[in-house]
Amino acid sequence: MLSVDGLFFGYKNTTILKNLEIELHQGEILSIVGPNGTGKTTLLKCITGIIKPNKGTVMIDGRDTSRMSRMAHAKCVGYVPQSSPSKFPITVFDAVLMGRRPYITWKPSEKDLETVADILKSMDLEDIALRDFDQLSGGQKQKVLLARAVAQDTDYLLLDEPTSNLDLKHQMEVLEMISSMVKTNSVAAMLAMHDLNLASRFSDRMVMLNAGEIFCSGEPQQVMTIENIRSVYGVEATISQANGHPYILPTGPAGHSGIKKCFSS
């Protein structure tokens, strides 16, 4: 279990995360949702150790991450960034092989290469294995970054907006991949998500952040309510159900007189 306890983060004058308490269990997908600038990415970075929280702890299976070495930490938590800058040419195989870094000292071993080859095969990236990462489409890049995190072989995966630049089909593919990985390998995934409908469709639990604080959390049914969306996003919406998942249809900004009339009473 990964648990975030009393986490605070901020720069000199601004506090970004306030007293967060989050638990992530094996075999579970947890989505972090909330408006822009609410601290979703910052939270993920605190958990992966990219930035240090000012207060509070991140515990992984009972171990305090602040006492772990970087490499030990990297063997526990994998991170998929929103995008990866690529100034220099690198093949897809090498890009995925980077995920083995915590296990490599001088050169990758035979086992590292085999692991990467297996992952590429299972994720259908075989054909582009020796292509240049930079020449791939957005969807392919996202899959490669995901493959890198899988190669890292961790029990916990953190993904920052894994679907943000993807078309519908790739959104589905990437999320299906994450979902099947979580179920079959009994790992746990935490996703920072913008798309509430995708989040609701794919996650077991959701945490809704507002201005760095947890506004509400629970199953998608509990979090995706008209009131929550109005107060956190400032948007009026209707909520419907499809296949047991709630989904929202935004109708307009909250406070707009015409729309408000429709929904009041």
Partner: peptide, 11 residues
């Protein structure tokens, strides 16, 4: 080359 954040996340 893959970015500071990815590098940090990989230890």
């Amino acid at each position: 080359a893959a970015g500071d954040e990815s590098a940090k996340a990989l230890g």
